[in-house]
Design a protein around this nucleic acid. Structure first.
Lengths: 359, 359
DNA sequence: CCTCCTTGTGGAAACGTTTACACGGTTGAT
DNA sequence: ATCAACCGTGTAAACGTTTCCACAAGGAGG
């Protein structure tokens, strides 16, 4: 593979001139520039990013550590992140933490070793000091989706969506359909999304004069299997809930499994709703009512915030609203008013062509 | 961030000794080693991977270019790849080509600039010379899932799964259920998986004395939208097919959409099957019959082949069998014999707890 | 004509590692 | 006692860039 020296020799100039020509440095003659460009073309020269990074102390690479690649929510996030980063001239290295703190640390460490310019993290459960230490050590860090509470002494912007209103809407929806005993399958308490969603749910219930007994809080870990277990426990109760709200899509999947393997049916025997909307929810049996985050926008905003920081500009936290998408998994009843405006009119409810960002 | 010099100073040795101590070079005294280790610990020193790569001319990084991150099949593949790579001491940089040749080239170029040690590609449509040039230039390359035919002059192992038998089984299944007019939604002709699956389907039909008329071959691009369009065209035919086989899961999703938006029902009005099984197929309405690839094993085998090549060992192509998973989307009829042995007995067919690799 | 600035260029240092080579000291064989 | 072999260590070169500095040539202003 040819180096800059080869180009210089071929163009009859020094390596310094080649470098300048390639980096659009102003003071290089038209003549030299064109000879260099020609030589580059002929040799098929490509600058060695490793050497360049060593010298300039920047890799133009972002690290993205997410909690679970298999979760469609994160995969959509990752896609948006990569897209936005690319448009800003950065590459992205993805690390999959699989909801495991040790894996998360592994990736953070590897990414730091690689001298990435900035880190985008959706932190898992588990109090690992490494992440915050990284931020303290000066690496630009931005949290996306979830965040770590102890990050007060170092300023790490958080890009996330606020589901409070949507949860309120959901509870109103359930209430209107006659459901009174509402349960939730929570995420790990240590994750912000885990605890926040429970709180929002509890508050929304309170607004209707309902309580959230401990027995109606299932402990999950954002994985399908935990959703199944929690649901089974609910169903074993002497007074099982009439509706279950899963704090993420995978746990909703598990819940669906559990309900079905008992020979019960959604929403006839029990209602189901989920946080995080995904394309597949349109096609499940029944289509499931979900709270949709503006995932793509979240990813893009996060990248912009991170790059702002990297390039020395100020970056602020961003919170975008989530919205409720009503389908059929909570019952169809006499949903009178146009509460959810986005799909009131259409008759074939729940089967709207799902927009995918890639036509 | 401390460098090797700082460690050397602190430990009272030369940088060479530090380097040797850290790389388990045999000839370094116990005394020196422990002092170095102590200094490393105290300073929180981590070797700069960039500098190391420049010197050693290896990055211990693999590139993975896949055609669509949003496709659960590829995301599962990516996950397996990362896992296996990590266990072998490599990192993975993922590039999402989104089925676009230009994006694929972009990623290949970027990855080469980064001097990755090897490249894992599931090539998109489109005759880009860059990929094969990369292989010719000496970068170890392994194809996974799909491959490029023109790769004869340079030896690039192919790790994929063979769906021929499974397609035969599927056609037999459809035939037994009484379907005679069978259609397929193909992938891009330029991708091997695109054309191969059509061929396998055609052959299987022939074995039953059936033909595959051109009108029953829909041209798709592995994206949901194309599956919808193809299906609509099928349904507009004066004699629409009785069964549709989608060459990937996303197009099956689109087909499901199309059928439903016409007010028709699967499998009552039309049967549906897909290549690539994914967890969600258990929960769609109806659960869809699919051909399952050993995705994880594919990813792992591909990494092993690539690393073998990187480390100078020989690497051979691998072909693993796919298998049919019968659910309800083709009709339940009088499926008498135990053709698909793996789910004959269970009564609540199609709702088997889906195994996910992460409990 | 001298000075001063501008413009284009090249030499060489620097980035943080690994590693070839050299060297001094100890050991073991002769 | 001499020599070879070996062990642990340090010095310095190298990897492929970017960039600081110096410098030559040329033009403008005095």
């Amino acid at each position: 593979m040819p180096g800059i020296k080869d180009v210089a020799a071929r163009a009859g100039v020094s390596v310094a001139t080649v470098s300048r020509a390639l980096n659009r440095h102003p003071s290089v003659s038209e003549d030299a520039r064109s000879r260099v460009l020609a030589a580059v073309e002929e040799l098929g020269y490509r600058p060695n990013a490793v050497a360049r990074s060593l010298r300039t102390d920047q890799t133009r690479t972002l690290g993205l550590v997410i909690s679970d690649v298999l979760n469609p929510y994160f995969t959509e996030l990752a896609r948006a992140v990569e897209e936005e980063a690319r448009s800003l001239g950065y590459s992205v290295i993805i690390g999959n933490a699989d909801e495991r703190p040790d894996l998360q640390d592994h990736h953070i460490r590897t990414l730091r070793d690689r001298r990435i310019d900035g880190l985008l993290v959706s932190p898992t459960d588990g109090g690992t000091p490494l992440l915050l230490d990284t931020a303290r050590a000066g690496t630009p860090v931005v949290f996306v989706d979830r965040w770590i509470p102890g990050a007060d002494d170092v300023d790490v912007p958080v890009v996330r969506s606020d589901g409070r209103d949507a949860v309120r809407e959901l509870v109103a929806h359930l209430h209107r359909l006659g459901h009174r005993r509402l349960a939730i399958i929570a995420g790990p308490a240590a994750t912000t999304t885990g605890s926040e969603r429970v709180e929002a749910f509890r508050e929304a219930l309170a607004a209707h004069g309902l309580e959230l007994p401990d027995a109606y809080i299932g402990q999950g870990d954002f994985q399908a299997e935990s959703g199944r277990r929690a649901t089974e426990r609910f169903l074993d109760l002497s007074e099982p809930p009439e509706a279950v709200f899963a704090a993420d899509n995978l746990m909703a999947l598990g819940a669906l499994d559990a309900v079905r393997s008992r020979g019960l049916r959604v929403p006839h025997d029990i209602a189901l709703a989920a946080f995080d909307d995904i394309p597949w929810f349109v096609h499940t049996d029944p289509p499931v009512t979900a709270i949709a985050q503006p995932t793509g926008e979240l990813g893009r905003a996060a990248v912009r915030a991170l790059v702002d920081r990297i390039e020395g500009r100020a970056a602020r936290s961003v919170t975008l609203p989530a919205r409720l998408v009503v389908r059929r998994s909570c019952g169809e009843g006499r949903e009178g008013g146009g509460t959810p405006p986005e799909n009131g009119p259409r008759p074939g409810n729940g089967t709207e062509p799902q927009k995918r960002s890639n036509p």
